[in-house]
């Protein structure tokens, strides 16, 4: 019985740690977004998150509206990681603006959609000392 209780506590602890790490990644993504709020961008509460190994990519699909301007901000709590985010249209063409940037464990992509429709946001952990690196992606529009 004691062993079961210990196991349950361990599982809960591991689970809590994993959740906390995604939350941390989201905190960093939101920090990346902070300067843009002053420029009138409304940052969504909803976000994507997960974990990736070095060199792994993930695609998320997002409906964007012509007339709006969007920034996507990515962050991770792993300070020595290098991450990136890029935006493609439904035909697979890179559409982000040249002021998109990446800096270590932060990255951001800027898009002014030429048309209303679905776009692909490709997130990647390019390098990381960790086996799995938590990431989070938030976006804002104006």
């Amino acid at each position: 019985m004691k062993q079961l209780a210990f196991l349950a506590a361990f599982v809960l602890l591991v689970r809590a740690t994993a959740v906390a790490s995604v939350d941390d990644a989201q905190s960093f993504a939101l920090q990346a977004a902070e300067p843009y709020v002053k420029e009138g961008f409304q940052v969504r509460e909803d976000y994507w998150g997960g974990d990736l190994g070095s060199g792994e990519k993930k695609a998320v699909r997002q409906q964007l509206f012509k007339g709006n301007e969007y920034w996507f901000w990515m962050g991770t709590e792993v300070e020595k990681a290098k991450i990136s985010v890029h935006i493609y249209d439904s035909e697979g063409k890179l559409v982000e603006e040249p002021d998109s940037w990446q800096k270590g464990h932060f990255a951001a992509a800027h898009v002014i959609p030429k048309g209303t429709g679905s776009y692909f946001i490709i997130v990647s952990v390019e390098e990381s000392p960790e086996e799995r690196t938590h990431w989070a992606l938030v976006y804002g529009f104006r």
Binding site: R44, K58, V60, Q63, S84, D99, S100, F120, I122
Partner: peptide, 25 residues
């Protein structure tokens, strides 16, 4: 720090198979 060079085109048919859920605007 501009973004690292990204491919100008990707194969969306490959990507489409592993997209995450959409965030509803």
């Amino acid at each position: 720090a501009p973004a690292a060079p990204a491919p100008q085109h990707i194969d969306v048919h490959q990507i489409s198979k592993r997209v995450e859920d959409v965030v509803v605007p």
